[in-house]
Computed example of a mutant assay.
Amino acid sequence: MHQPLVAVSTDVKQFENYSWHATPRQYLEAAIAGSGVFPVLVPNFGDRLDLDQLLLSVDGVMITGSKSNVHPSLYGGDASEANGPYDHERDATTLPLIRKAIEHGVPLLAICRGIQEMNVALGGTLATEIQEREGALDHRAPVSDSQDERFAIRQPITIKPGSCLADVFGAGEIVVNSVHRQGVDRLGSNLQVEALASDGTVEAVSVKDARAFAVGVQWHPEYWVKSDNVSAQVFKAFGDAVRLHAAARSSLRDAAE
């Protein structure tokens, strides 16, 4: 089966006296099993990379979650040790990659840190330690040594009628996992809210009038893609959009020959 190429963001990690550019296996597994695509890791070298050329060569972009947070200086906030850790090299790569993917009309799926990067890339701001707000839910993972417990599906959210995700799930309530302590505050330009938690926390966004699928989700569909229908549908929708983009590019090439 043909597997279109999808560019996947990475984190910079220090390990065994090396600086690694890597991403957790779950995202790659979900891209292959859930979307039917070939994930290609993008190293974090900022403006040393020709991202326009990359986007002429791939049919999708996936921005992964991470333990690190977007540096507050990029949205007018104040950095602190409590808000960290940070990954400056990732920020310098993913934010322009997101903007250029939207500009090129390349399908985009942004997960957890990814939705926050998406919001900042388009001029929005982030709220930190959202569990401390009056009336807020605790969106952090349960304290546990078990990853299955930490990523348990436990939080209901509501998909807005008429949204992009309403075409995927239908409008109304779905249940997802929740593993975050910051989120969207002021919405970035040209973004619209797709889903909300019961405390008003933004759980998904999309780009208005996007040329292709361009969605960010605050939860982690990659973790349960093989066993949870909601998680699987996110990656199927992304994969379908990627294949549609690949087919359109192929038609253009054929017409030019």
Score class of each variant (00 low, 15 high):
residue 31 A to T: 07
residue 151 F to K: 14
residue 26 Q to C: 12
residue 256 A to R: 15
residue 29 E to G: 00
residue 156 P to D: 11
residue 8 V to C: 11
residue 61 V to P: 04
residue 42 V to I: 14
residue 142 P to A: 00
residue 137 L to N: 05
residue 75 Y to A: 09
residue 33 A to C: 06
residue 206 S to H: 13
residue 57 S to F: 00
residue 81 E to H: 02
residue 215 V to Y: 11
residue 153 I to Y: 00
residue 231 S to T: 06
residue 48 R to P: 07
residue 193 V to H: 06
residue 162 G to L: 05
residue 184 V to C: 04
residue 25 R to A: 12
residue 80 S to P: 13
residue 57 S to D: 10
residue 185 D to G: 10
residue 257 E to P: 00
residue 163 S to D: 03
residue 209 D to Y: 07
residue 105 G to T: 05
residue 202 V to R: 06
residue 135 G to M: 02
residue 65 G to C: 03
residue 207 V to I: 14
residue 221 P to V: 06
residue 177 N to V: 03
residue 13 K to W: 10
residue 220 H to N: 11
residue 190 N to D: 15
residue 243 R to Q: 08
residue 175 V to W: 01
residue 62 M to G: 02
residue 222 E to T: 07
residue 56 L to I: 07
residue 33 A to M: 09
residue 208 K to C: 10
residue 12 V to A: 04
residue 86 Y to H: 10
residue 35 S to T: 04
residue 204 A to H: 12
residue 63 I to A: 04
residue 172 G to M: 14
residue 182 Q to Y: 14
residue 32 I to R: 14
residue 146 S to A: 14
residue 197 A to M: 07
residue 128 T to L: 10
residue 205 V to K: 09
residue 224 W to Y: 06
residue 247 A to I: 03
residue 233 Q to L: 15
residue 244 L to R: 14
residue 173 E to V: 13
residue 152 A to R: 13
residue 229 N to P: 02
residue 242 V to A: 07
residue 235 F to G: 01
residue 243 R to M: 01
residue 118 M to P: 11
residue 154 R to N: 02
residue 92 A to D: 09
residue 108 L to R: 08
residue 79 A to H: 06
residue 45 F to S: 10
residue 42 V to K: 10
residue 235 F to Q: 01
residue 18 Y to G: 02
residue 164 C to F: 09
residue 183 G to A: 08
residue 123 G to V: 12
residue 143 V to Q: 12
residue 118 M to D: 02
residue 43 P to S: 12
residue 231 S to P: 03
residue 143 V to D: 06
residue 144 S to D: 05
residue 222 E to D: 06
residue 36 G to C: 00
residue 192 Q to M: 13
residue 107 P to H: 06
residue 78 D to M: 09
residue 216 G to A: 04
residue 210 A to I: 08
residue 30 A to V: 02
residue 44 N to I: 03
residue 11 D to L: 13
residue 128 T to E: 06
residue 131 Q to S: 10
residue 224 W to T: 06
residue 54 L to M: 15
residue 149 E to K: 14
residue 73 S to R: 09
residue 111 I to H: 06
residue 212 A to W: 03
residue 201 T to C: 03
residue 142 P to R: 10
residue 163 S to M: 04
residue 213 F to Q: 00
residue 218 Q to W: 09
residue 239 G to W: 09
residue 155 Q to G: 00
residue 233 Q to W: 04
residue 39 P to L: 05
residue 177 N to R: 11
residue 34 G to Q: 08
residue 48 R to S: 15
residue 128 T to G: 15
residue 217 V to M: 12
residue 142 P to T: 07
residue 92 A to R: 05
residue 106 V to Y: 09
residue 226 K to A: 12
residue 93 T to A: 08
residue 188 G to W: 14
residue 18 Y to S: 13
residue 128 T to P: 12
residue 205 V to L: 15
residue 121 A to D: 01
residue 241 A to F: 08
residue 165 L to M: 14
residue 124 G to D: 08
residue 237 A to L: 01
residue 136 A to R: 13
residue 129 E to N: 15
residue 152 A to H: 02
residue 160 K to C: 10
residue 4 P to G: 08
residue 5 L to G: 03
residue 141 A to K: 09
residue 186 R to A: 13
residue 18 Y to L: 15
residue 193 V to F: 00
residue 203 E to H: 03
residue 28 L to A: 11
residue 199 D to I: 09
residue 256 A to F: 04
residue 174 I to W: 11
residue 171 A to D: 13
residue 100 K to D: 08
residue 116 Q to D: 01
residue 132 E to I: 01
residue 10 T to V: 00
residue 218 Q to V: 07
residue 131 Q to K: 11
residue 17 N to D: 15
